[in-house]
Design a protein around this nucleic acid. Structure first.
Lengths: 233, 233
DNA sequence: TTGACATATATGTACGCACATAACAATATT
DNA sequence: AATATTGTTATGTGCGTACATATATGTCAA
């Protein structure tokens, strides 16, 4: 049939999207059932189902059994942030990447790490401070704590060749994570490493990951003021 | 059949995920074909297809026609950030929300707005400065520019009752957006409004939205140092 | 050797059907 | 009147089949 490809789930999705965006279907209102839409488009219900499922996963419609499908009250758009390997970040900007391990010692975790990871003060953790460089200029400082009970192999890893960030992302799986963003002022240590003024604005990303219930690693990343994290909606 | 529900796309997905996380399937390696997996699980290929499609949409596997499916080299985990109505943000923390329009005037856009929106200096824009309050204490300042050619109705909106943020999110659809995060220092104006010290750390979110090619609105949000934006992976 | 062509293969998509499941509605039962 | 029971409805899921499409590989001829 010639009309086959007109009925692809993709074009149906576009069509439905248009009605939502144009205001034909107001936020909160019920839209026709899958069967009705399938009838209208002259396609199988499974095809409409797929289109609607996709729209639901993007948060544009809310689906409930029996009740039907309605346009989301707040068309919550989601921004997706990828968790990158820093080296890729730098190289994608066309710069050359390097890193330096500034500190590496097995320590007892300070309080904020204990709180975040759920580990106790007597648990063995590896503290790593890494400077990431872009074209040999400071790009970001990373303060990382690794749970040695969960990741003992890291003590044998060649962290001078492959950064802790990349090594962990590649080698150690995790099932759950948390990330948060904030702003703070540079203290003496950070200002010294990043070569900024004391009390310069610092963009901070904190991230913790777990595998099941056991903490893998938790870290703070400090970016100088000129850094911008950008993403599309 | 009793084994029917064992073959749901969800459990298949979990099963595949386990193999990726356990390292049984290394990053970059080819995994069995849909047909082979369908055979192994004793289900239809369409079911395996759905499981793999979902994993691909989450960035865990890369699929190519003919070549097959392989585990992503960087099992890129994505964090999803919702674009909230500020009022909900505040109320979810159990505080009461208020807002105040500090400035509201039709102006020619400054250069940074022109760059971001693609509009020219002679285009009519509405400049709105809004203070968002949590329990009557400053929570965030919003500097917003609205394209009056695209959204003329905003001049008649009751912005003292419903904040520009909420009004726009509810009433004006957009098809494309960009969001970025950074840190900066409080200037006199921002420090005054947020009641922080001069040169305090400020967390900045910038957001622009378009409908097709026409800019809708662009804004900067200034949060005081104690603010943290948190999300799960 | 090179390029044009055919072929095999793995994923992509659509269909029609069947049954599962949640939620609401109407009815029957205590 | 309060509680079970049953039915209806819209979405959720799975199956088997068919065909589409991109791409790697092999084949043959210029």
């Amino acid at each position: 049939m010639a009309t086959r490809n007109l009925n692809s789930h993709r074009s149906i999705q576009d069509n439905l999207l248009k009605r939502i965006h144009s205001g034909e279907w107001q936020p909160g209102s019920l839209i026709p059932t899958e069967a009705a839409l399938a009838d209208e488009f002259g396609c199988a219900r499974t095809t409409v189902n797929r289109a609607l499922r996709q729209l639901a996963s993007e948060g544009l419609v809310i689906r409930k059994r029996h009740s039907g499908t309605r346009v989301a009250l707040t068309p919550i758009r989601k921004a997706t942030l990828e968790i990158p390997i820093i080296r890729h970040d730098v190289e994608m900007r066309g710069h050359t990447y390097n890193h330096m391990i500034l500190k590496s010692e097995a320590l007892q975790p300070p309080l904020w790490v204990q709180v975040r990871t759920g580990l106790k003060h007597h648990d063995k953790m590896l503290y790593l401070q890494t400077l990431h460089l872009s074209d040999n200029r400071p790009y970001m400082v990373e303060d990382r704590w690794v749970n040695l009970n969960a990741v003992p192999q890291i003590e044998a890893a060649p962290l001078h060749e492959i950064s802790p960030n990349e090594w962990l992302v590649r080698k150690v799986p995790y099932s759950r994570g948390e990330i948060s963003f904030s702003a703070s002022l540079a203290d003496e240590e950070i200002a010294g490493i990043l070569e900024t003024k004391l009390s310069a604005a610092i963009f901070v990303i904190e991230r913790s990951t777990w595998m099941g219930d056991t903490s893998i690693t938790t870290l703070k990343m400090y970016y100088p003021e000129n850094y911008r994290l950008t993403t599309v909606l």
